[in-house]
Design a protein around this nucleic acid. Sequence first.
DNA 1: AAAAAACGTTGACATACATCAACGTTTTTT
DNA 2: AAAAAACGTTGATGTATGTCAACGTTTTTT
Lengths: 192, 192
Amino acid sequence: MHEDLIYYINSQLSTPLSEDEITRIKEAFVPKKLRKHQYFLQEGDICKMAGFIKKGAMRQYTVDESGKENILGLYIENWWVADRESFAQNTPSLFSIDAFEDTELLVITQEAFQRLLKGLRFMNELATVLTERQALQLLKRVHITKTLTAEQRLADLEKTYPAFLQRFPQHIIASYLGMTKETMSRIRANKK
Amino acid sequence: MHEDLIYYINSQLSTPLSEDEITRIKEAFVPKKLRKHQYFLQEGDICKMAGFIKKGAMRQYTVDESGKENILGLYIENWWVADRESFAQNTPSLFSIDAFEDTELLVITQEAFQRLLKGLRFMNELATVLTERQALQLLKRVHITKTLTAEQRLADLEKTYPAFLQRFPQHIIASYLGMTKETMSRIRANKK
DNA sequence: AAAAAACGTTGACATACATCAACGTTTTTT
DNA sequence: AAAAAACGTTGATGTATGTCAACGTTTTTT
């Protein structure tokens, strides 16, 4: 049940998990299934749990007044999902998160997360590593978004996260990259 | 000498600094002055220290092949400066950082930082808080950059960091916001 | 005080990309 | 198996913003 998660956490730590820590993880993380298109979190709600994706694919996005979706994040196996701000500060979320395929998660509540953070050294290290990594990735993304053309942004994604391109339809990738599906289609047509 | 830094750190922590911790801070952070336009870090170098700005203003940026600067970050009093990735992983920096005015810093080396991280609870808490906050801000910035027009991005900056507008010339703000100085000038002309 | 940079503005023009609309294909639902 | 969505493509047209160039003003340097 928890093998993937434990394997993943070990891969992120400087020292392996103890038996006791593994037990605590198994207690704290509970399975949750989402059907395709089902919400994990709706804009305006508070993000009561964080999830580790065992199987499936998810997306984080906003919807503007005119109904247009803007995709901020795409997530697949072995990624974490949560609205960081809402989860950490218990405030209403600005974004929605839903399953893009049938998805299996292991989820942890805010309370259980706080308990592990206080009690167990590994959780602190894990949270630090992940937050730090996210900050680096986001800074690069700001830079990419500001400086590259639509075509270059796509090339960058093909290099950085090739799995996304097989996993999500083109119009979703286009929105993630900040272009329309038409532009994306034309870029691909030109490259052949 | 260290009053501002200590006051700042206390403001970020859940419990006040002890006398011992204050002593350790005073040992670890040393003053450094930079003249206007002097480098704190050059692209390609390793970021050997992180700095807290006591007085002055700084910028983080890249220069592309054609010589065009792109500004990623602006920093003033009570902000931290460092290339996070380079500082944490001891790798060559992708960005440059320099002083935009005569600036007074308190700087800490990688080694001293690691020592405080291991030895002192407060440093861990501080680093976590700051990294977490940066990740939140960057995610918002990605969203803003993707969804707002040039005019809306400026309005957002006026709301979020009004101090920047008094502190930096227009063409610097324009680059930070991802537009040309001409566009910025026209936006301001139209608003009156 | 004079000279040189740096900064901001304005106009003419160029362009990357969005928008709108129509249509064919593939996938999902019933 | 039929119907309905979802997806991707292509063309015509619009627009926000970039580029280039010239010029006036302010600030910095000597």
